[in-house]
Amino acid sequence: MHRLFVALRPPPPIRAHLAATMEGVPRARWQDDEQIHLTLRYIGEVDRRAAEEIVLALGHVHAAPIEVALAGVGGFEKKGRTDALWAGVTPHDALAALHRKVDHALIRVGLAPEGRAYLPHITLARLSRNAGFGPEIERWLATHAALSSPVFRLDYLTLFESHLGGEAARYEVVERWPLG
């Protein structure tokens, strides 16, 4: 089985800028440079045949390169606790349009449509139940609330395979398509 997702990779200077924020929350599992991405669509586990169909379908998705900038930070909550910290990006329109194109391409090969609202973001850390406490998380959010960057381009649509194990997932590029 192949655990897949579709994403965009920020350029190295933006990834370095994000890495500079990754401290101050005890036991947070911060993303390393190879893990920093902006997810367009999580696919999940599929067999080899489905993975091949997904590659073909995504090869027909066309969009112009997307220009965005970092815009603040936030956290996702699950069962009353923060379980992830993220950086926002803006504007959302082109990203949301590309998300819809990717979703429609995947629906055409038999995958279920995305079940949740799309919020463009870059995950910076995952938090286990015992990672940090409210004050550390709140302090990190306040310290980085004004996170911003110059406008940068996202030039490639990438299909990744996620390999779980150990402390962190490892992401492998399956296929990459230029935007434009």
Rank of each mutant, 00 (worst) to 15 (best):
L56Q: 13
D103M: 00
H60R: 15
V102E: 01
S128T: 11
V102D: 02
L127C: 09
G72A: 11
R100F: 01
L58D: 08
A69H: 10
H99T: 03
A97M: 05
A57S: 14
L106T: 07
D103K: 01
A96F: 00
A131S: 12
R129C: 00
R100W: 00
A112I: 01
G134N: 02
E77P: 00
L85N: 14
R81W: 14
D83I: 14
R129S: 13
L127P: 03
A57G: 13
H60T: 12
T90A: 14
R48I: 01
F76Q: 08
R129F: 07
F76S: 08
A87F: 11
L106N: 04
A125P: 07
L58K: 05
V61K: 06
P65F: 09
L106W: 02
V55M: 13
E52V: 04
I107Q: 14
V102K: 00
A117H: 06
E114Q: 02
T82H: 12
V68S: 09
V68P: 04
G74R: 10
G88C: 11
A51W: 09
V55C: 14
R129H: 11
R108G: 03
G115V: 00
L106G: 05
G110W: 03
E67P: 01
A50G: 02
H62R: 15
L119T: 15
A64N: 08
W86M: 11
G80F: 12
A51Y: 11
E77Q: 13
A64P: 07
T90Y: 07
L85W: 14
R81P: 08
V46W: 05
A71Q: 15
P113I: 02
F133W: 08
D47P: 01
A131F: 08
A96V: 10
A112T: 02
W86F: 15
N130K: 12
S128V: 03
A69T: 04
V68W: 09
G80Q: 11
P135H: 13
L56R: 15
A105H: 01
L124M: 14
D47A: 06
H62A: 13
E114M: 00
D83R: 14
V109W: 02
A112G: 00
A71F: 06
N130T: 14
I107V: 15
H92F: 10
L111G: 05
I107A: 01
E45S: 12
G75R: 14
T123D: 05
P91R: 05
V68L: 07
V102T: 02
L124Q: 11
V89G: 05
R100K: 08
G132D: 12
H121G: 06
W86D: 08
I122F: 03
K79L: 13
L95T: 02
R108K: 09
R49A: 15
Y118V: 08
K101D: 07
I122Q: 03
G72L: 10
I122M: 02
A131E: 03
L106D: 02
V89T: 11
G110K: 00
E77N: 05
I107R: 09
T90D: 10
